[in-house]
């Protein structure tokens, strides 16, 4: 078992319910897409898996190790194994692409070693290979803020690869990209998922993207799992149920499909 959530609930300090009794098992190599309205708890679910958010109750196991009860170096070791990709890339803008990718390696070294900023040759090779995998090796020595959005997102994918993570969490990875680069970034994620067998969990709000890339779709509504099945099972009727209303045109990336939806509803 790769990831297992047992009766996970999260209530925020202001009383908002983020997650309600989530039970979920994700196997190695799955490409899971989580869909749902904004505020449904997609981001909360993803962030509780690597414990950027502490859950209120329940247990989350990664490779049979509880991340919810881990702390200190054990927590960091589990996190090192989980790459994360953010909507806003979250790169260190003022430094080079290579340094950004190398920052994914810090979990492998002592604080003192990284303090001096010198990574072993092997790490640089790992970083460059990671960049090659997302086709931007030639940008290695360019400052990160000089790159386009799509390129920056690929750097952040390379950072996750440099971690040698077995799990990648992507929180709305394409929400700030244009349709063309969206496809490229999703293709990268899919390729990595298939070639390296990295378990991938992606939050998306585009339904057609979810159907094109997922091996499994999970629907969240008001912090609860209301659907969990294959792409084929996620029909428009099911999605309408997840969203609590008919699916709208802006929930599709490809506008040509928009007509079909309007027809259906």
């Amino acid at each position: 078992m790769m990831i297992e959530l047992r009766q996970v609930s999260k209530t925020f300090p202001n009383g908002t319910i983020g997650l309600k009794d989530i039970n979920l098992k994700i196997q190695t190599g799955e490409f899971v897409v989580i869909v749902g309205l904004s505020g449904a708890g997609k981001s909360t679910l993803l962030r509780s898996i690597n414990r950027l958010i502490d859950v209120t109750s329940g247990d989350i196991q990664i490779h049979g190790q509880s991340i919810t009860s881990a702390s200190g170096s054990r927590l960091r070791a589990i996190r090192r194994n989980i790459g994360m990709i953010f909507q806003s890339f979250n790169l260190i803008k003022r430094t080079t692409v290579l340094n950004n990718v190398l920052s994914g390696r810090v979990g492998y070294h002592s604080t003192l070693r990284t303090l001096l900023g010198s990574f072993p040759k092997r790490d640089v090779e790992i970083a460059l290979t990671a960049l090659e995998r997302v086709n931007i090796r030639e940008k290695a020595y360019i400052r990160a803020d000089q790159l386009s959005g799509g390129q920056q997102q690929r750097v952040s994918i390379a950072r996750a690869l440099a971690q040698e993570a077995t799990i990648i969490l992507a929180d709305e990875p394409v929400a700030s990209l244009d349709p063309l680069t969206t496809r490229q970034v999703m293709d990268d994620l899919q390729r990595i998922n298939r070639e390296l067998n990295i378990t991938t969990i992606v939050n998306l709000h585009f339904i057609d993207l979810a159907r094109d890339y997922a091996t499994r779709i999970i629907g969240l509504r008001a912090g609860e799992i209301v659907f969990d099945g294959s792409v084929g099972e996620a029909t428009d009727e099911i999605l309408a149920e997840i969203y609590g209303r008919p699916v709208k045109a802006d929930e599709f990336l490809d506008t040509s499909r928009e007509m079909q939806v309007v027809g259906v509803t």
Partner: peptide
């Protein structure tokens, strides 16, 4: 947040 997720001290 990214550095925390990476497992940084």
């Amino acid at each position: 947040e990214a550095m925390t997720a990476v497992g940084a001290t």
